[in-house]
Nucleic acid binder design. Structure first.
Lengths: 209, 209
DNA sequence: GGGAATATTCCC
DNA sequence: GGGAATATTCCC
C-alpha cells in the first residue's frame, strides 16, 4: 500500500544506455528517458481504463499532444503512481526540461514533435535541454538577500563570485574542447578529400599524356 | 495511507536559505540540508519510541555517530517515512555526499564530526562535498577533513586556491582559444588549397586536351 | 566511495 | 520557462 509505485520503479535507470559511446548529437534511436516512458505509458494506460466523463488526462484528438483535464486529480492520483511526487509543477518542470511546449492558454495541453500517440519508438529521439553557459552570468542579477551586512559579507560575496566564475570557466573549457575536437575531425576530412583529389588528378593527367 | 510521507515533506526545500548570498565555504551557521535534518530527526524519534530489543537504528553509545542495526528493516520501514525511496544504497550515497565516514567493517556505523546526539544546531555546518575537476591537482589539498582548523585560516587558504585555480583556468581558456584559431586557420588554408588545386587541375586538363 | 545522469524542488 | 540546488539512481 505504502509503496504502490515500487513496480513502476523497475524501469528506472534504463536511461544509461544513453550515455555510452554514441552520446553525440545523432538523432538515432536511444533508450528513452524514464520520464518520457512513464508519461507515455500513463497516457496509454489511462486511456484504456477510464471513460470520457471522468478523464483526468488524455491524448488530444489528433494524438499529437496531450491534455491534463484535471490538474488537481492528476496531481493527487496519477502522478504518485508514476513518479516520486505529487506536484504538478514538478511535472511541468520536467516537460520543459525535455522541450515540450504548452500550446494553449486555456487548458493544460502540451506537445513535443516526437511525442505522439502510437509512436513510443520516437521517444528515444527526445533529449534534455542543455544549459548554455556564459562565463559571467547570474551574479549581476542577485538583488535582495537579507543583508546581514557584516564585515565578512563582502568577502563571502567575493568568494561566491569566484566560485561561480570558476564553475563557468570549467563549463566553457569543456565546450572549447568539443569545438577543437570537431575542428580536428573536419581537418582530417579535408585532408582526405585533398589527397583523394590529388590521386584522381594525377591519374587523369597521366592518362591524358 | 499511500502518501504517508506527505507531512514529512513539508520541511523539504528549506535548504534554500543556503543558497543566497552567503553560500561560501564559511563554517558559519546555515539552514541544514533537508537530508541532515531528516536523518537527525529519524534518530531522535526512533530512539524514543522503540525499546532496545527491536532497534532498527540508533545513536551509538557515546552519541558521536549512529548505527543501522537492521539495514533491511531500516530500508523497508524507516527510509520511506523520511525519504522518497527505500534503497539503503541511496541513503549511503547521501551520507558519503555529506562526508560521513563508515567507521566499522562489522556493522553499519557512521560518523560525522558535526553530527552528534543533542547537537541539532551543528548540522548547519555540514556541507556537501564538491566535485573538483582537474586544473588543480590533488597535491595541494589538505588530507584530513577532520581538522577543526580555525575558520579564517581555512577560508583564506581556500580563497587562495580558488584564485589560483581561476587564474589557471583563464590561462587554459586562452590556450584553447589559440588552438581553435589555429585550427580554423588551417581549415581555411586547406580549403583554399583544395579550391586552387581544383582550378589548376582543370586548367591542366584543359591544356592537355 | 564517488562520478555523472536524471528527478524533484525552489526561486526568479 | 528555466537556473540552480538537492535528491535519487546507476555505474565504475
Amino acid at each position: 500500500m505504502a509503496n504502490n509505485y515500487s513496480v513502476l520503479e523497475l524501469n528506472l535507470g534504463l536511461g544509461n544506455n544513453n550515455v555510452g559511446g554514441h552520446a553525440g548529437q545523432s538523432p538515432r534511436q536511444r533508450c528513452p528517458a524514464p520520464f518520457l516512458l512513464k508519461t507515455y505509458d500513463l497516457l496509454e494506460e489511462l486511456g484504456e481504463n477510464i471513460e470520457d466523463s471522468t478523464k483526468i488526462v488524455s491524448w488530444n484528438a489528433e494524438g499529437t499532444g496531450f491534455v491534463v483535464w484535471s490538474p488537481s486529480e492528476f496531481s493527487e492520483l496519477t502522478l504518485p503512481r508514476y513518479f516520486k511526487h505529487n506536484n504538478f509543477s514538478s511535472f511541468i518542470r520536467q516537460l520543459n526540461t525535455y522541450g515540450f511546449k504548452k500550446i494553449s492558454s486555456k487548458r493544460w495541453e502540451f506537445k513535443h514533435e516526437k511525442f505522439q500517440r502510437g509512436c513510443r519508438h520516437m521517444l528515444g529521439e527526445i533529449t534534455r535541454k542543455k544549459c548554455e553557459p556564459s562565463v559571467f552570468p547570474a551574479y549581476l542579477k542577485s538583488s535582495s538577500e537579507e543583508n546581514n551586512a557584516t564585515s565578512s559579507t563582502e568577502e563571502n560575496n567575493d568568494h561566491q563570485l569566484l566560485m561561480e566564475e570558476n564553475k563557468n570557466l570549467k563549463k566553457e573549457r569543456l565546450e572549447l574542447q568539443v569545438q577543437i575536437d570537431e575542428c580536428k575531425a573536419l581537418e582530417m576530412k579535408l585532408l582526405e578529400c585533398l589527397s583523394q583529389f590529388m590521386d584522381t588528378h594525377q591519374n587523369k593527367v597521366r592518362r591524358l599524356c
